[in-house]
C-alpha cells in the first residue's frame, strides 16, 4: 500500500479508497444539500478559482468574481455527479473551473460556438473499477511529483495550464524557441510518467 502522505488532509484508508475533506463535502452536498459543507468548500476553493481566473491577467477582477460564482454554483448543482472512486475532489473542481473559464473567454471574445467546453469530455465513462483506481493513483503520483520538477519546466506548464496558453503563445511570451518549449513540456511529462501513445 502506497502511503500518500499527510499533506493537504489526504490519507489512504485501509481499503485503498482515498478520501479527503473535500470529497466528504461534495458527498454531503450531493446527499443532504449541506450548506455548511458548501461553505467550507467555498472558502477553500474560491480563492484558488480566483487565482486561476486571474493567471495570465487577461481577465478583469469583476469577471474573475463572476467565474468564481459560476464555478461554485456548478459545484453545488453537480455534486451528485462527483465520483470519489474516480478522481480527487480538487481534480473535479479544477475541471469545472477550466471548462467555465474556457466558455467565459469565448463569450467575452464574442466567439459564437454551438459547443460548450463540457461537450469535449469523452462520452465513454465505463472504465473498469481497477482502471479507475489506477487512474486515480497515477493522478496522485503526478500531483506529488510535480513539486520536484525543475522551475523552467513548471514555468511552461503553468503558462499552458494556468494561463490557457498554447505552446506557441508560451514560447512567444517567454522569448524561447518553440522547440525548446515543446521539449521542456515533453521532459516534464516523461518525468511525471504520464503514459501516452508514441506518434
Amino acid at each position: 500500500m502506497q502511503v500518500v502522505g499527510e499533506k493537504q488532509n489526504v490519507w489512504t484508508a485501509p481499503t485503498g479508497r482515498r478520501t479527503d475533506e473535500w470529497s466528504e463535502c461534495l458527498t454531503q452536498i450531493a446527499e443532504h444539500e449541506d450548506r455548511a459543507a458548501f461553505t467550507r468548500l467555498f472558502r477553500h476553493f474560491a480563492p484558488l478559482i480566483k487565482a486561476f481566473a486571474l493567471s495570465g491577467s487577461t481577465m478583469s477582477a469583476t469577471h474573475a468574481d463572476e467565474l468564481v460564482q459560476e464555478v461554485m454554483l456548478k459545484v453545488w448543482q453537480k455534486a451528485g455527479a462527483f465520483n470519489p472512486e474516480k478522481a480527487a475532489a480538487s481534480t473535479w473542481v479544477y475541471t469545472i473551473a477550466r471548462n467555465c473559464r474556457t466558455d467565459m473567454f469565448r463569450r467575452l471574445q464574442k466567439f459564437d460556438t454551438p459547443l460548450a467546453a463540457e461537450d469535449f469530455t469523452p462520452e465513454q465513462d465505463g472504465e473498469e473499477p481497477f482502471a479507475q483506481l489506477q487512474s486515480k493513483r497515477s493522478g496522485e503520483r503526478i500531483r506529488e511529483m510535480m513539486a520536484d520538477l525543475p522551475a523552467d519546466q513548471t514555468q511552461i506548464l503553468a503558462k499552458v495550464y494556468m494561463e490557457g496558453k498554447s505552446h506557441a503563445e508560451a514560447a512567444a511570451e517567454l522569448d524561447l524557441p518553440l522547440g525548446t518549449v515543446k521539449s521542456r513540456v515533453r521532459l516534464a511529462i516523461q518525468k511525471l510518467q504520464v503514459q501516452f501513445e508514441r506518434v
Binding site: 479544477y94 497515477s138 503526478i142 500531483r143 510535480m146 495550464y161 494556468m162
Partner: peptide
C-alpha cells in the same frame, strides 16, 4: 486524464487570491 492532473496540481498549489 493523467494530463489533467498536471492542471490540478498547479491549481491546488496556486497562491490563493482572497475572496
Amino acid at each position: 486524464v493523467q494530463l489533467q492532473n498536471i492542471g490540478t496540481a498547479l491549481f491546488e498549489s496556486a497562491d490563493p487570491v482572497p475572496v
